[in-house]
Design a protein around this nucleic acid. Structure first.
Length: 959
DNA sequence: GAGTTTGAAACT
DNA sequence: CAGTTTCAAACTC
């Protein structure tokens, strides 16, 4: 039970984390290789995944094993195996130790090494030999090649890999499929722990190992092996579990030394290192396992002989694939994992996929596993993605992750945000149609043009379908996890349709004519049915779908267009041009509209919240007291008395304001007159010495308005602060800022930082722009009185945000990811279309980080009203987003907040958040985020981040 | 499902 | 800016 004396300090760490150990074992080897060749990376990744999944199961045992010296185990293990393994393991250890530095030099270095070390410690068993055999370590090239080949057989290899993996036992437990793949013999060995069997197998393995070395490695390993074999043969009897440890140890040492000497001579350091690592890995695994399991592993290798190698390689490869997925730009792996865990259905035909999924689930479940991911991610290079379709399929591709994330992001909307592909544009990510809590048309929109950026990147068409579904499911799952509210209509035929539709249209490469036809078909086919469907959907989901007949969905009449999103399949519109295929048209039209009215796509509702948030919310329903939320422009109702949805104020669940020109207003959420009174109250409050805060709040109103204008990412209107700070696009930042307006306190606190913030200049600029905006909106109630100073306060907050933005890794947080993700959705869709990236609040990105903490509550309901809650809770200002719910991020965290907008009608114009560029970064986010919060992770992507900034329109359109 | 009502958007 | 027309959602039957 005592830990082996030889254990290096480094190993200790790895050991602590059982998962890490496992991963490391395999991973380490691969990682080492990876630097040399890309394939390796993939391998490493995949392997890593496999290991992880099992890790949770074995955690305790492994740890024990690891900690426990080989000695302890030996007794347990079958004699032969233990003896030999111990020897080789020992040797391996030394080699590994010597090679450690060498490994460090490698890119992957530490991660790989750590595992290796751990393994070394653990490894006492002969497994090392087998491993070596399994991995013709000597020839990385071969190995890689094999791996590649195996990829073709992905399914098979995968299953095998799972089984054979070091963690095999775990994998077996987890993955039935994999178990099936395992030969009966293996099973027998597994079930039966008979020493005899083990012994029989063992010799075979040793021989095989020897052959392997001879055959594949030019190195003189033979002598060593011979020795080992010899030793092994001898050892078993001598080394029995009962043997004196000291003697045994000494014996090992001798042999080890001999072996080491020979090996060192012949082997290249790198080569040695690799072998040792693999060997260790296997050994560790076997050693960890009860004698039975190790034996199994050995048997597998032995029985299969070289073929096993292939399998193993394949296995590794698959593992690698899995890992790859994880590592893939998406790094998604993490996200995928999360999503997958919940994914109900896996498209995959292949068993492998299933098994993979299973493992993934486990992984997700395991708390530690997450941690493991991170390291992996770091080690893995994104490029892996490209690997093969085989890899892509199931788990995922980036696309999946993205989707999932995206979907997740919109919590409310579930739908997809449209994402702008990194390259061009904008594609909608498909999200699954989650039913948004609030009314979100966005979801609908999202459907339409969902294109997985990743999918493209991946380039594997085959995978698309599967990936697509997976995505959707994942996203849905993620959503579910995140917010119960979201419902996934996985069965929804519309979705299916979408998928089909999307698949084709996704590629812009397609001839436009084809797209157009498809679109037309789509549009024209059974418009009634569609319409009805849409209507139904609205009822059920609360999501809106347009039904435009004459406007071609290129006017503000169209809710989708107004929201800055593409029409979805579910829409019943006719001759719709608001589709990705007509991106240019949409964009142009949008520009025209903005040219006429820069605020056309700006959010319409702003909210000022007072102490009682409940009241303030338009949602309250009641609203005897005029809620702070108000329609930007106000309604013009004459007959409906603001008691029907004809009234935009009512629709948005906000009270009417002075800006309204309604007649006979009876708005339940607040009458026009009442609003005036309320406003007066506020003013009084301001006057009272009571607080500057109140004043600032008032000012905020102004700010809010300004923001309103900004709100859309899409719209250029909003004064964008382009914060270069972050790569993140302004939209994101904007979004955050909007949603989470910094509380007064926050603002105050932030003030100091203001000057220093990198975006300071930007802020100033922004202020200026805000001013302009305000003036622009004079009509609105808010604008009039508010002194400019308001801006300053707000900006201060922003500033602070900016400072935050500077933070090295903003997106890592779940929230952030989620937010970003939503944005991305939006972005995709809108960006191309609508989003202009405004970086409005450069701070945005930073805001998002800070904002969360700062603003306790953000309501992103469909209502479109944004609340900013001060820590004090005294006053809250909310910005309303006109942005579609989807667009609005509902950070999962926020989900708690009720989102529904009764109207379901277009709430706000989409914000452009994500930019294609963000994808990469977003992926990063995902990876990071995943570990911390699996559910949230999906969000990911910050892809949006950059796009707004670049968008010139923002400013131009404003004026 | 068809028709009406309503008010925003678009146009002049 | 005001008035008119167009449009699509909301609503009614």
């Amino acid at each position: 039970m005592t830990p082996p004396p030889t254990q290096p300090p480094t190993t200790a760490n790895s050991q602590s984390d059982s998962v890490a150990i496992q991963d490391s074992a395999i991973f380490g080897d691969i990682s080492n290789l990876s630097p040399v060749k890309p394939l390796k990376d993939a391998l490493v990744v995949s392997r890593f995944l496999e290991l992880r999944s099992p890790s949770p199961v074995f955690t305790s045992p492994r740890v024990n094993k690891l900690q426990g010296t080989t000695y302890l185990k030996r007794p347990q293990c079958s004699q032969l195996c233990s003896a030999e393994s111990s020897q080789q393991g020992f040797i391996a250890e030394e080699i590994a130790v010597s090679s450690n530095e060498f490994e460090k030099s490698n890119i992957q270095g530490s991660s790989a090494l750590a595992p290796v070390n751990c393994i070394e410690k653990e490894c006492i068993n002969n497994c090392s030999v087998q491993d070596q055999t399994a991995y013709p370590s000597g020839h990385t090239d071969e190995y890689l090649a094999d791996a590649v080949i195996d990829c073709a057989n992905s399914t098979h290899s995968a299953s095998l890999s799972l089984i054979q993996s070091d963690d095999v036992p775990q994998s077996l437990t987890t993955c039935p499929d994999s178990i099936e793949m395992v030969p009966e013999r293996d099973r027998k060995t597994n079930t039966g722990q008979d020493e005899e069997k083990a012994l029989d197998a063992f010799p075979a393995t040793t021989e095989l190992a020897g052959q392997d070395f001879e055959g594949k490695s030019s190195f003189d390993i033979n002598p060593i092996e011979t020795d080992t074999n010899h030793g092994v043969s001898k050892m078993p009897p001598s080394v029995g579990p009962k043997d004196d440890l000291s003697l045994y140890h000494a014996f090992e040492k001798q042999q080890c030394e001999i072996l080491v000497a020979q090996i060192t001579k012949d082997l290249n350091c790198a080569y040695q290192h690799l072998q040792s690592n693999q060997g260790y890995e296997d050994c560790t695994e076997t050693t960890r396992e009860d004698s039975n399991k190790p034996i199994e592993n050995m048997i597998l290798h032995c029985t299969k002989g070289k073929q096993d190698r292939g399998h193993r390689r394949c296995l590794q490869f698959e593992d690698a694939q899995l890992h790859t997925m994880a590592s893939s730009p998406g790094s998604w792996s993490s996200s995928n994992i999360v999503s997958n865990s919940k994914i109900p259905t896996i498209p995959a035909d292949t068993k492998v996929s299933e098994s993979f999924c299973v493992e993934v689930r486990e992984i997700t479940t395991g708390g530690q596993q997450i941690n493991v991911n991170q390291p992996i991610i770091s080690t893995i290079s994104p490029r892996n993605i490209g690997n093969s379709r085989s890899t892509v399929p199931k788990p995922s591709g980036i696309g999946l992750h993205l989707n999932s994330i995206i979907n997740a992001m919109p919590n409310g909307c579930g739908a997809i945000g449209s994402m702008k592909s990194a390259e061009k544009g904008y594609r909608n990510l498909e999200g699954r149609k989650l039913v948004p809590i609030m009314g979100c048309h966005p979801p609908e929109n999202t459907k339409k043009s969902l294109v997985l950026p990743s999918a493209r990147e991946r380039g594997s068409a085959s995978s698309e379908d599967g990936s697509y579904e997976t995505k959707s499911t994942v996203s849905a799952n993620s959503h579910a996890s995140m917010s119960p509210q979201i419902v996934e209509p996985s069965n929804d035929p519309a979705l299916l349709k979408q998928s089909e539709y999307q698949t084709t249209p996704r590629d812009k490469t397609k001839s436009t004519s084809v797209r157009a036809d498809a679109a037309e078909e789509y549009n024209t086919s059974n418009p009634q049915k569609i319409r009805k469907k849409a209507l139904d959907a609205n009822d059920g989901d609360g999501c809106k779908r347009c039904n435009c007949k004459k406007s071609r969905c290129l006017k503000l009449y169209c809710d989708c267009f107004a929201a800055g999103i593409y029409c979805a399949e579910s829409c019943a519109c006719q001759d719709c041009l608001n589709r990705p295929e007509y991106e240019d048209t949409v964009f142009d039209t949008r520009q025209q509209i903005e040219s006429r009215n820069p605020l056309a796509f700006a959010p319409k509702i702003i909210q000022l919240i007072t102490d009682s948030p409940a009241n303030s919310n338009g949602e309250d329903g009641n609203n005897s007291t005029p809620s702070s939320a108000r329609h930007k422009r106000g309604c013009n109702c004459k007959k409906s008395m603001c008691l029907k949805k004809y009234c935009e104020c009512y629709q948005a669940n906000v009270g009417c304001s002075n800006g309204c020109r309604c007649e006979g207003c009876k708005n339940v959420y607040g009458r026009k007159e009442e609003y005036g009174m309320a406003k007066d109250v506020l003013d009084q409050g301001l006057e009272s010495p009571f607080d500057e805060k109140l004043e600032t709040m008032a000012n905020r109103d102004t700010l809010l308005q300004t923001e309103l204008y900004n709100p859309h990412n899409l719209t250029p209107l909003t004064p964008s602060f382009q914060f270069s700070d972050h790569a993140k696009d302004a939209s994101n930042s904007w979004f955050f800022s909007r949603r989470c307006l910094p509380s007064l306190e926050s603002d105050l606190t932030s003030l100091p930082s203001f000057g220093e913030s990198p975006g300071h200049a930007m802020l100033i600029k922004a202020r200026k722009e805000f001013k302009d905006l305000v003036s622009w909106h004079q009509g609105s109630d808010y604008s009039d009185t508010e002194p400019v100073s308001g801006f300053s306060t707000r900006y201060d907050g922003l500033t602070s945000v900016c400072d935050h933005s500077t933070l090295p890794d903003p997106p890592s947080t779940d929230i952030g990811s989620s937010v970003s993700f939503e944005r991305s959705d939006w972005t995709t869709s809108s960006r191309a279309q609508f989003c202009r990236g405004s970086g409005h609040l450069s701070s945005v990105s930073s805001l998002r980080w800070h904002s969360t903490p700062i603003t306790p509550v953000a309501k992103f309901d469909g209502t479109k009203i944004l609340q900013a809650v001060d820590s004090d809770e005294k006053v809250h200002y909310m910005l309303e987003d006109d942005m579609p719910d989807i667009l609005k991020d509902k950070p999962t965290a926020i989900d708690g907040v009720k989102v529904s907008s009764p109207n379901k009608k277009r709430i706000s114009p989409p914000r452009c958040s994500s930019s294609s560029t963000g994808l990469k970064s977003g992926r990063k986010f995902i990876l990071r985020s995943v570990p911390s919060f699996p559910p949230l992770t999906p969000c990911i992507d910050s892809k949006d981040s950059s796009r707004n900034i670049n968008d010139p329109r923002d400013f131009s359109s404003k004026k």
